[in-house]
Design a protein around this nucleic acid. Structure first.
Lengths: 109, 109
DNA sequence: CAGGATCCCTTCCGATACTG
DNA sequence: CAGTATCGGAAGGGATCCTG
C-alpha cells in the first residue's frame, strides 16, 4: 500500500504519467516535455514505472536506436484518481498558500 | 502544484490524514496509532500539515500539557480524492506486484 | 539516441538525550 | 506529555564522462 502511494507521490512519476496520458513519447521527447528532469532521473523513474507495469517500453532496432514509452492498460487506470487529486490541488493551492503565509508570519514573530 | 502533491505523496502525511479522518487525536495517540513513526517525524509531519492548513492544533493548558490535532475544513476536503487514490492502490496492488515479479525475474537472467 | 557508471554534495531520518 | 536539539549514517539526486 505504502510503496504504491510512494510511487504516486513521486514528483517525476506523476508528471511523466500525465505527459504520457496524451500519447506515447520517445526518451528524448520526454526529456524535452518535462523541463528540469535530468537524464538520470528520467531513466530511473521510467524503469520504476515500467517495473510496476504502468508504462511499457518499445525498442525500435534502428540506427541510432529509438525507444518509445507508452501507458499500459493498468497505467491508464490511474489517470482518473490521479486527476482527482490534481484537481483538488488546483482548487486548494490558493488556500494552502494563504495558510502557509499566515503560519510563516506567526512563526517569524 | 508540485509542492502540494509532494505533501500528499509523503508516506506519513497520508497515514496521518487518514487516521485523523475518523476523529481528533492527541500526540501520543497518533504515536500509537501510526506504528513505526518516530517522534521526530510525527512532530515534523504535523507541523507541515498544520502549516498547509490541513490540520489544526489545540493546546490544553493542563499539567502535564495535552495537545489535540484535528482536520480542518480544508483538510477534510482532501479525503475524497485521497480515498480515490487509495482505492486505486487497493484494486491494483495485486497487478503491480505481479508486474514487479515479472520484471525482476527477467532482470535476473 | 538512449542509457550506464562514477563522483560527490545535500537532504532525510532514526537514535538519543534534554526540557517546560 | 509533548515536544526540541544534536549527531551520524543512509539515501537522493545533479554533473560529467563513456558506450552500443
Amino acid at each position: 500500500m505504502r510503496d504504491v502511494l510512494d510511487r504516486v507521490g513521486d514528483k517525476w512519476s506523476t508528471l511523466l504519467l500525465s505527459v504520457l496520458a496524451t500519447r506515447p513519447h520517445r526518451f528524448s521527447a520526454l526529456l524535452r516535455a518535462v523541463p528540469d528532469i535530468s537524464k538520470r532521473m528520467l531513466t530511473q523513474t521510467l524503469r520504476d514505472l515500467e517495473r510496476d507495469g504502468l508504462v511499457e517500453r518499445e525498442v525500435f532496432p534502428t540506427k541510432p536506436p529509438a525507444v518509445e514509452y507508452r501507458l499500459t492498460a493498468l497505467g491508464a487506470t490511474i489517470l482518473e484518481p490521479l486527476g482527482g487529486l490534481m484537481a483538488w490541488a488546483d482548487r486548494s493551492h490558493a488556500a494552502i498558500r494563504a495558510a502557509r503565509a499566515r503560519f510563516d508570519a506567526l512563526s517569524g514573530l
